[in-house]
């Protein structure tokens, strides 16, 4: 049992518990906080994987911005425990969970078996991974690729963000006009 393994199981367990807490808590604030815990554990997993930059961005974007926005809205609307009217009950809830477990089983099956036949599971890739452990991906590499080969997707992303910005302003603006 090497340290990486131990850390993986700690962070993995925390993220799973957090995720289950998100869907079990009645109150949205508690769900949001559990989700933050999950995001943190995932940032930890990214660090184990050598993706330090992604880990930092994960915390900045998800924990620092997106979840604050969630909390802000929950507090602004003063949402308490809301009615779950129309929620699946009894048997149907059981069916939903069984379907979910089936989905998980599929995912696990793919993860364990199908990879053996692809490039990812090949021995060449394994060697590459071993080499990479000693020489992790630097922020520099990410930046270089982002501004050369993937420049177009990068610019498209900025357009998406701009569209979102305008969309939000339009959504809020309409409210004001009807009120006036």
């Amino acid at each position: 049992m090497n340290p990486e393994m131990i850390l993986f199981f700690i962070f993995g367990a925390v993220s799973l518990i957090g995720a289950i807490a998100v869907i079990s808590f009645r109150h949205p604030i508690y769900s949001a906080l559990s989700l933050i815990v999950t995001f943190f554990a995932q940032a930890g997993l990214f660090v184990i994987l050598g993706a330090h930059f992604v880990a930092a961005v994960q915390v900045i974007v998800y924990a620092g911005a997106i979840m604050v926005l969630f909390l802000f809205v929950i507090m602004l609307l003063n949402l308490g425990t809301l009615s779950e009217k129309g929620a699946l009950t009894g048997k149907l809830k059981g069916v939903a969970i069984i379907l979910g477990i089936l989905l998980a089983a599929q995912g696990i099956y793919i993860a364990v078996n199908a990879l053996n036949n692809t490039e990812v599971g090949s021995e060449a890739a394994q060697e590459k991974a071993a080499a990479l452990t000693n020489n992790p991906i630097e922020t520099y590499d990410i930046g270089e690729l982002l501004f050369s080969k993937y420049l177009l997707p990068f610019e498209v992303t900025s357009l998406i963000l701009l569209a979102a910005l305008i969309g939000v302003i339009v959504l809020v603006k309409r409210e004001n006009q009807t009120e006036n």
Binding site: I29, H52, A55, A56, I60, A63, T139
Partner: peptide, 25 residues
């Protein structure tokens, strides 16, 4: 001396808001 030192600072700074928000709520 982290590789991503300055990003670490930004990331942790952005967490400071939770104490205030959660305490307030």
């Amino acid at each position: 001396d982290l590789n991503i030192g300055i990003l670490y600072i930004l990331a942790i700074t952005s967490l400071g808001v939770y104490g205030v928000v959660i305490g307030a709520w």
